[in-house]
Design a protein around this nucleic acid. Structure first.
Lengths: 207, 207
DNA sequence: GCCGAAGCTGAGCGAGCGCTTAGCCTGCCT
DNA sequence: AGGCAGGCTAAGCGCTCGCTCAGCTTCGGC
């Protein structure tokens, strides 16, 4: 509602907040490489090569390979949280807001699958401090979804056995889209978003 | 029904099919290390050390580090498929069989989380031939779940919009348990299994 | 037209990787 | 008692990793 996120699952064109241009090219290259092979299997030579630079150029813009992952993870979690907050705080019934949250969250995980993959599955490669920062963001993500479900239960819109467990399951379902979604597969991000919104409404017993 | 899988989510004591003893100890050590740090971040020295052996001992029982992962993945997928098949082919309504399949599949992913983590999330570290073999097993896993759902729809027990998409979502939900489940967390494997069986029955509109 | 800062490269360092090899025990067959 | 096959280790090979550094180019300010 507030921002322009109509067509696919995500932003207009991402990473525009990363400057200068060379730093952004390196970061985009790192996202692709991390998503394809995983953080530990990706070499700094590979990242620099994809960005059309020598291996040494990476260290002008980033202190370490881990800082690249940290920046990607931070920006990605901020974006994911923003998507959920936008849906959670619009006007409407809990049912409408939950459906909106799930469909837009899923569209992002499918449409920007490479980014989401890195964001959701490479957390363990971060050091303790960076990981703690990201874990705090994840708790906020959890709180947004739990909030909608609790409101739906209070309002009598939902019928849920275990709010915390159901919240976990809903988020888990959405996040795992980044693992299995295939651009060449039978579904578009929009289709998965719509299907998953329906499934989640069933899970919470929406009337 | 056929085997003894009552209490937790899995087997009596696993890896008993791996012989000799030294090979099993190395494999168990590899499962722990891969689950903790991921395949690429685990060193052969670490695996051998956990098994109380020198790095060279690993290569008496396994040709490469990748062969270790392949063996783990193969045995784990066989076990997961066996769990689903047992539930799918017992007697009862589609609703009963789906609930049984989901709860036992989830109990395995939670109770044997370290194994499940390696099995489900390190597929990409395998070479082309090994990966192809595992992907074939995954298709059989998908077929078992889709079979139950299709039978439920045909029998008028379920109300499903998209059978393939719902199958994917159900499996995705169960598999992702291996990512978030924490032994020190608020749930036991049995609780998650029961909760998830209920959620999945809601997803398929079980009457 | 000169100068210094910023961006980048070629070459390479120290470390740790997967894996190999030579040789040492141990226990079983004869 | 002797021989030998299998299980294991100490040492280390060749390689690639993350990262560094001296020096080259480019370009705006004066």
């Amino acid at each position: 509602m507030s921002t322009a996120e109509e067509t696919t699952g995500g932003e207009v064109e991402p990473w525009e907040e990363v400057t200068p241009d060379a730093a952004r090219r390196l970061l985009v290259a790192a996202v692709e490489a991390f998503a394809e092979r995983g953080y530990h299997a990706t070499t700094t030579r590979d990242i620099a090569g994809r960005a059309g630079m020598s291996p040494a150029a990476l260290y002008i813009h980033y202190k370490t390979k881990e800082e690249l992952l940290h920046r990607i993870s931070r920006i990605g979690h901020d974006k994911a949280l923003d998507i959920l907050r936008t849906a959670a705080r619009r006007e409407g019934t809990a049912k409408e807001r939950l459906a909106d949250a799930v469909s837009s969250f899923v569209r992002w995980h499918a449409g920007r699958r490479t980014t989401a993959r890195v964001v959701q599955y490479e957390l363990d490669a971060l050091g303790p401090e960076a990981r703690a920062e990201i874990v705090a963001l994840r708790r906020q993500v959890d709180a947004e979804v739990r909030g909608i479900i609790e409101e739906g239960v209070t309002a009598g819109e939902f019928d849920v056995l275990d709010v915390q467990g159901t919240t976990l399951a809903v988020l888990s379902l959405c996040i795992d889209v980044a693992r299995w979604f295939n651009v060449d597969g039978p579904f578009t991000p929009e289709e998965v978003g719509a299907l998953y919104a329906d499934l989640v409404l069933r899970m919470v017993g929406a009337k």
